[in-house]
Nucleic acid binder design. Sequence first.
RNA 1: GGCCCGUUCGUCUAUCGGCUAGGACCUCAGGUUUUCAUCCUGGAAAGAGGGGUUCGAUUCCCCUACGGGCUACCA
Length: 500
Amino acid sequence: MERFRFAPSPTGPLHIGGLRTALFNYLFAKKNKGKVILRIEDTDKNRYVEGSEKHIIESLKWLNINFDEGPKIGGKYGPYRQSERTDLYKKYVEKLIKEGRAYYAFDTNEDLINERRKEEEKGSVFFYGQHNRLSLKNSLSLTESKVSNLIKNKVPHVIRLLISTDKNILCNDLLRGNINFDSTVLEDKILIKSDGIPTYHFANVVDDHLMRISTVVRGEEWLSSLPIHFLIYDAFNWTPPNFLHLPLILNPKGKGKLSKRDGDRYGFPVFGINWNKNLSQNNGFKEAGFAPISLINYLSQLGGSFKNHEEIHSFNDFIEAFDVKKISKGGSKFDYEKAKWINSKYIQNINVKDLLSFSNSQTKQKLESLYPHKINDIYKLVKDRMVLFSDDEKILSFLISSPTNYPIEIYEKIRLENAVEEITSAINIINKVPISSFKDSLMHYVKERNIKLGNFMKSLRFALVGDLTGPDLFDIINILDKKECIKRFNNYIEFLKGLS
RNA sequence: GGCCCGUUCGUCUAUCGGCUAGGACCUCAGGUUUUCAUCCUGGAAAGAGGGGUUCGAUUCCCCUACGGGCUACCA
């Protein structure tokens, strides 16, 4: 049984980079009929952010990425929060110390800062490793009795990995093949911090082993720690799992990888669901008006090409098409325009009923009370012009309230000779015939008088909507109904009279 | 600075040595439409540079350049 895991840290909201890592884990697992587990890596007390675990879980749930094991679901390899596994790590690290693969280090923060400064002055960079460990304060350089004294007196200390002196460490990545690292430039990484809590590197390896993970899918930012992880597996004499490092999602405008702040900076969502209640704009794809499957489609083609990008595919399509060989190696820039296009394509392909089930906007609620029997007709009108589910607000506001003002610059564009007279005729026609035959009667009228249809229509639209864009005018008239149309036409006549 | 990874149109990508380098987003032009959007047709737009290997290189190798990541008692 293949086992995968998604292992975020609750240090803030989960952004689309994490979402994509989760997605690829999920696709990979499902493709192989394997399992995916969710593990919360909360080993950093200082960076812990209240509410982020909830945000992570809810974001993934919204995207329909479901886990087989996890903190809420349970499972036989739990607990699934690293903070609840501290005793376990202690047990395992002691084994390493006993076997001489790890050691105690007593250097204080000040000691290390000093060392760093010294190296900096020489124009190089300090790292704790085989070239200098014997001149630092640790159980390798100090006598045995001194070390046991320090420990007995509870002098703060960390536990470091003893990097072997083999020069070459051969690692493997599913995407990039073999990668060689030189152990002489590797740091003796801290395994257990002075507060007794493990670092990412240690907890990660122990858990992946204990939880029987067969393939680790994670972001490329971890590639440089791969040799450390291989060395920890080696120290335990464990077989490492497969590794797949995903290319990073890059900032579309600036430099570097996409960050959580870029959403605010450039005005697009970067989270699955909103984070933070008092927002000037939505930063979640959900609230911005995306369907979960739209985001799945977008994420699947960012740094991969399992399917073509011309149509919307289902979750199952992607599972079937998933192929490690189809993942690209280079990072890819986030492109909000493309994401939006995918969602508009999706909206065009669903029926009105589904569209309505997605939206619960204020606009929809108001329209439902205003036009209880016409809600389907209304959304049918705008379906093809919606990019986001939230677009109904700007497209349909004219159905909720009549135009409050008629922008003079738009009026200038359509200026009709005898405007008052023509609008009055429209009122007469609409009064005389059933609303359903208004179109025929109007066409007849236009033809009889030899009026230019284009301008006349624009004029009517302007009177009704206060703008020149929107759905079919006769459909609008049908929905507004006689009384409201006449009211708006009269308002417009008042406006026209006010001009002269 | 050191180590590691990468590099095809502006962006996301296809190409498993034969290329007139394909598609999508964006963009531009035209058509359909009462308007706008949708939709349809068409256009512009790319294998970082230099060396090899080969009959032939975008594809394989090396160097350089550029981009990215890591370099914390963060993950």
